[in-house]
Design a protein around this nucleic acid. Structure first.
Lengths: 256, 256
DNA sequence: AATAACGGTTCAAATAATGAACCAACCACC
DNA sequence: GGTGGTTGGTTCATTATTTGAACCGTTATT
């Protein structure tokens, strides 16, 4: 493994629940030697990718990451563009609406709006979603590059519930339906009792960048509501895609 | 230089104006060999820190950075906390208000509100500000760790205008005044014709995390306006610091 | 006082990074 | 339709960086 890969692996040990970790802890979790771990941390700290708490001597992710992320966001203002539409969709559906962006081999939740219901689907910002077993994932795959789809379908797929589709053929069929329909439906594929619809947000090249989805408790969801939400989520995704790709509405290379 | 440092240096070649760069370009600018550059890029791409455009084969910053930046933001919700107060301050002063966060050896502009005036001070998100020659920088240094101050004052300092203070003693005096007053004033130290006031946003340990500042054309700025804005910016910084450090308003270790 | 955990450091040995030379493809220009 | 200059990408012997067991000094815990 490259040294750079190791350094990044170290960064990825941090998460929202454990945002600060000590040296020994990082060494243990990464499997690297303590000396190696520290050398990597010092290199990362030198560029502001991690910071060390002066009191506890624990490490946390640094401001340098935020700076680079902001430069990326200037190129792809995914969040700013999508947030108002997420809010609108949450208001009109009165269910949980979440926005995801693709990263490496999963979807990353970047924004969520929860409804006022006590009984609702809860999703956290930063949460990672698998591609094969969520409405968002299927919507993404439906407009993903062939190599991404292939990478997803080769290798064993986890079954999260009794309803999770894990045969590549079944998932492909599901993708095809989503492509034709314009939105995906996932019935308890990731969590028991939750039904979701999602649509892909697409770049200028027609390939998916991320997704927008509505998730609701199955108990209060009718077939009619699913169809209605599907159209709404599709329309929101279309609007975000158009705003992202400039006013010059270039025809998307891959049509639905 | 460590391999990790090289990889990060590569990432830092991207900026808002040039968000996508080719392999040869990156190699040229970094001074690394093309093979080295590519190996680093491949390692970075493997973890989503850069992405390659399928068409142009150019590289850009990746979604992995956004993910980690979001985890950091969950711990330090600097932006979310400060944005409303930046907006309020912009409304009440009718001048440019900008928010900065410290990174390595500079301040990074993370949010800006511009007034409606045609003649106004323009600042971009992501813009880097030197510590010794801006109101924000002085406000930051006034509550920074000794080692940060020392690192800033050792080595030669750039003079951006005829008014820029570059003698360590003069800068120290300026910091002292800011600490006592509660806000800093910088009269054309970074750009001719611009006068700014700033105050430090501080962490639970009492040390500065970032700053909030008001910048205006000197032509329409009276001494009374400076004093008024100074108090307003100080109050905004205090409010952000308090919200960041939790409801349990711990007494700040380093008092003004 | 003893123990065990912590963060941090050292230096010979092992491993990963390096870069000159090399493709193949593309683009402009005559 | 060559020709020269550019691009992204690859190879492999040489070289320099990374590695980790053993170490130190501190700080809790027992």
């Amino acid at each position: 493994m490259s040294t750079v890969g190791k350094a990044i692996l170290l960064l990825e040990l941090f998460n929202v629940d454990e945002p600060e970790l000590g040296l020994s802890d990082l060494a243990r979790r990464s499997g690297f030697d303590k000396a190696t771990t520290r050398r990597l941390l010092v290199a990362l700290a030198g560029r502001g990718f991690v910071e060390q708490d002066a009191g506890t001597r624990h490490y946390r992710l640094g401001a340098g990451l935020s700076r680079l992320a902001r430069i990326r966001e200037a190129r792809f203002p995914f969040l700013q563009t999508a947030v108002p539409l997420v809010r609108d969709l949450a208001a009109s559906t009165a269910e949980t609406v979440h926005l995801s962006e693709f990263g490496v081999d999963r979807l990353v939740t970047v924004n969520v709006e929860h409804p006022a219901w006590a009984n609702r689907v809860n999703i956290d910002i930063g949460q990672l979603l698998p591609l094969h077993s969520t409405a968002s994932g299927i919507a993404y795959l439906a407009f993903a590059r062939d190599e991404t789809v292939k990478a997803c379908l080769t290798g064993s797929l986890d079954a999260f519930t009794a309803h999770t589709l894990i045969e590549p053929a079944a998932i492909s069929r599901s993708m095809g339906e989503a492509r034709e329909r314009g939105y995906s439906i996932c019935d308890q594929g990731y969590e028991e009792g939750v039904i979701s619809v999602a649509a892909a947000i697409r770049g200028a090249d027609g390939f998916a960048l991320g997704t927008i989805a509505v998730a609701a408790p199955k108990a209060r969801t009718t077939a009619a509501a699913i169809a209605e939400r599907g159209l709404a989520v599709m329309e929101a995704a279309r609007e975000i895609s158009m705003r992202l790709n400039g006013e010059n509405l270039q025809t998307l290379r891959r049509q639905a």
